[in-house]
Every structure is written in structure tokens, then in C-alpha cells.
């Protein structure tokens, strides 16, 4: 079963790669048929990926949430899932050009650099993870991170399109990119959905930490960075709804938020301090 999970994972990665090429080609050449193929390849990749996660889970009898490999793989999975929701809502294939390559790169790093196994954990760590709250905590944080990534992608598109319009450029890029209000709305909705999920995920993690009686759990670098991420996206919503900040400022905040998420996910892992280390 483990072997089948691995094969499925390679297939998923290959399909994401194919989808990436097709999305980019569609964006450049504006051929709708290629967008359809790209969506098909992404969908097939997603199903294969899901099967791989399920098979891996079945083979190891452990929820695949530990270690950098699983984190990246689940992030890629959540990103594709969110992308499909976005594509369904805004009927735009453009975001596939941005998000599917990110998922592919995450998968490639996970597969090539980290191997497909979970982390070797101490008995203490295994005890900490032995709770339904932890599984839901991880799922929620991953989903919220995917939502933040979508918001950041839309914000990046907003800034590029805004700059084109400000400079009165009528380039092919300007014509391909969606309108400002659409990208702004997508970013706002993604954050509005992801933020409560992130908050709930954090709360579950805090409850588990308190329940397990971890001393100074809040001093863990990942917990603190999570607070920073929470604060950044919270300020986005506050600035939008309460102070009517400009679209440009909000887009920049969303991008800073994503940077914080990446720092939290990648760099914080390389600092082997705190309790929140479940395998590098």
C-alpha cells in the first residue's frame, strides 16, 4: 500500500507539472482548449494526490500531519482544493497559472528533497499529537494557509494590473489580467473565509497545548509567528472594513501576510526550539 501511495504521489506531481505548463500556455496564447486540459490535469492530479494521502494513511495507520514532507504535500493538496473553489466561483482560469505551479513546486520539494516518509517522533511528541483536536488543528491551518495564498495571488495580480492602469499601458499582460475589483474581491473573500478557519485552528492548538500542560507554550517560535500571521490578516480585515484603506495598501498587506506564512512554514522549522517540532 505504501508503494501504491508513492506511485500515486509521483503521478500527482507529474499531472500538476503538466497542468502548470498548460495553464501558462493558455495564459500566453489564450487558447481556451488548453485551459480545459489544464483543469482536467489538475483535477486528475488532485484525485491521485488524495488517493496517495489516503493510501499512505492506511499503510502507516497514522494521520499524515507530521514532518515537512507531509506539511508540504498537504499544503499543495489544500491549495488545489481551494483553487477549484475559486475557479468555480470566479470562473477564471488565470489563478491556475499562479496557484497550480505553487502546488507543483511544493510537491516537488516534498518529493525530491524530503522523501515521502513522515517524521520519526519521540514518544512524548506522539502523545501530544494523539488527539482529534490536533488533526483538525492541522487541517484548519493548512486550509487557511491555502486561502491566504489565494488572497496573496489575487493581491499580486491586483498590484500588477493597478500599475499597468496607472501607467496607461495597454500591454498584452493588462488585457489578460482580470479587473481590479474582481481581484480585490477575491482576495477579500479568501481572507474572510480563511481568517476564521485560521483563528479556530489556532484556538484548537492552544486548547491542546493547555490540555497537555505544556509550559510556556506561547513562547514557541511557531506559535508566536502564527500570532503575527493572525495579526497581519486581522489588520487587513480591520483596515478594509473600519478605515476604508486603499486597495493598494490592502494588497500589500496580503502579500506581507503570505510572506509571514512562508516564514512560519519553512524558516521556523529550521529553528529546533520550542515544543512545536514534530519532525523537520
Amino acid at each position: 500500500m505504501e508503494q501504491a501511495a508513492l506511485v500515486n504521489l509521483w503521478f500527482a506531481m507529474t499531472l500538476y507539472m503538466v497542468a502548470t505548463v498548460l495553464y501558462v500556455y493558455h495564459f500566453v496564447a489564450k487558447r481556451p482548449v488548453f485551459a480545459w486540459y489544464a483543469t482536467f490535469a489538475t483535477g486528475a492530479g488532485f484525485l491521485t494526490h488524495t488517493a496517495s494521502i489516503g493510501l499512505h494513511w492506511g499503510a502507516t495507520q497514522e494521520v499524515p500531519i507530521t514532518g515537512a514532507f507531509n506539511s508540504l504535500s498537504l499544503t499543495a493538496w489544500a491549495l488545489i482544493l481551494i483553487y477549484f473553489v475559486v475557479e468555480h466561483l470566479v470562473k477564471l482560469k488565470l489563478y491556475g497559472t499562479v496557484l497550480v505551479p505553487v502546488a507543483f513546486v511544493a510537491m516537488a520539494i516534498a518529493q525530491i528533497s524530503l522523501g515521502s516518509t513522515g517524521a520519526e517522533l519521540t514518544a512524548d511528541a506522539l502523545e501530544q499529537l494523539d488527539s482529534w483536536r490536533v488533526a483538525i488543528h492541522v487541517a484548519m491551518i493548512m486550509t487557511a494557509n491555502a486561502g491566504f495564498a489565494v488572497a496573496a495571488a489575487a493581491s499580486a495580480v491586483y498590484l500588477v494590473q493597478g500599475a499597468q492602469l496607472k501607467k496607461h499601458k495597454t500591454s498584452a499582460l493588462m488585457k489578460r489580467l482580470p479587473s481590479l475589483t474582481q481581484t480585490q474581491q477575491l482576495a477579500r473573500r479568501a481572507i474572510m473565509l480563511a481568517y476564521p478557519v485560521y483563528t479556530a485552528g489556532m484556538l484548537l492548538g492552544i486548547i491542546r497545548a493547555i490540555e497537555f500542560g505544556l509550559p510556556a507554550w506561547w513562547f514557541d517560535p511557531r506559535v508566536m509567528l502564527s500570532g503575527v500571521v493572525w495579526g497581519i490578516f486581522g489588520s487587513y480585515l480591520f483596515l478594509h472594513y473600519k478605515s476604508g484603506a486603499s486597495g493598494k495598501l490592502l494588497a500589500r498587506i496580503a502579500l506581507v501576510g503570505l510572506v509571514a506564512v512562508v516564514v512560519l512554514a519553512v524558516i521556523a522549522r529550521t529553528v529546533p526550539t520550542g515544543f512545536h517540532i514534530f519532525g523537520l
Binding site: 494590473q161 492602469l165 493588462m174 482580470p178 479587473s179 481590479l180 475589483t181 474582481q182
Partner: peptide, 8 residues
């Protein structure tokens, strides 16, 4: 056309 690039 430009208005649609701003407002969709």
C-alpha cells in the same frame, strides 16, 4: 474597455 479593466 478600460472601465471594465477597473470594475469588471
Amino acid at each position: 474597455e478600460l472601465a471594465k479593466k477597473v470594475f469588471d
